[in-house]
Design a protein around this nucleic acid. Structure first.
Length: 219
DNA sequence: CTCCCGATAT
DNA sequence: ATATCAGGAG
């Protein structure tokens, strides 16, 4: 995508949503790490539903360890991959206590040493909890980047590095939320709603659905 | 590369 | 019935 189009692309998303935020609910950095770790291959809505009760009683790594793996499973059994997630979250909590004084480190490499935390989760935490200009490439951003031509790559890391190069200063902090929200609600995986997309004219995606789903023939 | 895995939309 | 959902680890 041309540099001028990239600027226009972001400018429109920014005008449409000046203050984009995470839809994952968390009261502190620890809860954020847990919520994002739980969100792999699951919807934000599903994660929030499970963490509502969980986060009322668990606000620290110590409380998570006290709850235990079996107790945690009871809270998150409605989320996919819950067995490995429960194990990871307990282990992650223990490691925060043992190696980081019970605090969430404001460092991507340190975050990535936590069980169940990879580059994408670490990037989310750095951006949301610590205000870092990171580009957390999840399934939505990977799709939007490749589809639109904004940032193409065969792997999430490749797309992340391209976004880092292509994204101008004024948009770097919120780029990841603009892109994820656009992917979630407009540039959907199955049925992208191009007819109401505000950046459709800048997009490389060809099989655009030209019009909204056919309402029954109008009178 | 495979496995992990429930809820929801299509 | 199947694709998809804020991925990560072996």
């Amino acid at each position: 995508m041309k540099k001028s189009d990239v600027i226009e692309f972001y400018a429109r998303l920014a005008a449409d949503n000046p203050h984009p935020e995470t839809e994952l609910k968390a009261g502190n950095p620890f809860q954020l790490v847990v919520a994002v770790a739980l969100s792999a291959q699951a919807t934000d809505i599903g994660v929030n539903k499970a963490t509502r009760a969980l986060f009322e009683e668990v606000k620290t790594p110590e409380q998570m360890v006290a709850l235990g793996e079996a107790g945690l499973k009871q809270h998150i059994k409605t989320i996919g991959l819950f067995n490995t997630k429960a194990k990871n979250v307990i282990a992650l909590s223990e490691k925060l206590i043992a190696d980081f004084g019970g605090e969430v480190p404001a460092d991507r490499d340190a975050l990535e040493t936590l069980p169940g935390v990879g580059r994408k989760t670490a990037n989310v935490v750095m951006n949301v909890a610590f205000g870092a200009e990171t580009f957390a490439v999840d399934t939505h951003i990977f799709r939007v980047g490749n589809r639109t031509g904004l940032a193409r790559g065969k792997t999430p890391l490749a797309v992340e590095l391209k976004l880092d190069k292509a994204t101008p200063a004024p948009f770097r902090l919120h780029a990841h939320h603009w892109l994820i929200l656009h992917g979630r609600y407009v540039c959907k995986a199955r049925k992208p709603e191009c007819w109401r997309c505000i950046v459709a004219d800048l997009c490389a995606y060809k099989p655009k659905t030209p019009a909204p789903p056919s309402r029954a023939n109008a009178a």
